[in-house]
Amino acid sequence: MIRLSHIKKSFRVSRRAGGIKNAVGSFFRRQYDTVEALADISFEIGDGEMVGYIGPNGAGKSSTVKVMSGILTPDSGECVINGRVPWKQRKEHVSELGVVFGQRSALWWDVPVADSFELLQAIYSVDPIEYRRNLDRLTEMLDLSQLLQTPTRQLSLGQRMRCEIAAALIHSPKILFLDEPTIGLDAVSKIAVRDFVADLNRERGTTVILTTHDMQDIEALTKRIILIGRGRILLDGQLSDLRHRFEGRRRLTAEFTGSADLTALPEGASLLTLDGREGLSAVSDGSHRAVFAIDGSPSALISLLSGKTELTDIAVESTSIDEIVVNMYREYGV
């Protein structure tokens, strides 16, 4: 059980304008800005939930994760995770926590991955039998057998990320924080990582909090998302509801031959471009391409088109998750 209420955290950063004059000036009198990284963060996450924590760059995602990991001490507010305050009972708290920072390694650079794992076993005091069992399982599921004897610095990004995830799970944590786990990975590695996380959540009931810019990660893994912007929770809800609310209009692309006048369209449909141009609505003979925006069912528009022209191809696209997020960011002005 994770509960945050009214968490605030601000940083003081020194500020100066460019140029040599200002540089000299700041030597004598430095100006500071207070940046409110977390203005007011409250949410609850139950055991075994899998939650996507999203927001634009600089919104406060990582700061929240760092507060929950016991790395940052907030200025005010409460955070209780499984009955403990992370920064006060840090050691007890982190022994049940796994963290993957996508941009940083948890492994030792110059030694084989297996040696790093052994060191982690000692640091977390993992029982040798449990360690063996976890390692075997992780090796199999993440396909690590070829990698264990390789020094970390020789691994590719995708290989390393699989090892990082294994490293975060050696001690069977109850809660897993994934901070951009698929950043820079190829399609195959991304899917492998997603599948693994989904299995982990299903089989072990591990609570997973995922921060990412990759909306496919969110779509594949989480039902609930929390949107943060400028240090505040803007939205907290089911992904399906959000999809419904922010989906907007679908797009229909038609290719046809022959002449056509597309001024009178069924209700809910509007012409966006014809042959790549806006404002054009009628064309003479030849092959053409028209893009429409539609609300609801496309059938009326399709029957109209097929009656008037020789349709050669047709495609209906629903709003991608990326567009939904853009719509959300726009609506909340972040």
Binding site: K66, S69, G70, V94, F101, R104, I123
Partner: peptide, 14 residues
């Protein structure tokens, strides 16, 4: 500077 201290803080040792 390289974020190693973050890593240290998420491990259950002094």
């Amino acid at each position: 500077g390289n974020g190693e201290f973050d890593r240290i803080l998420v491990r259950p040792r002094n």
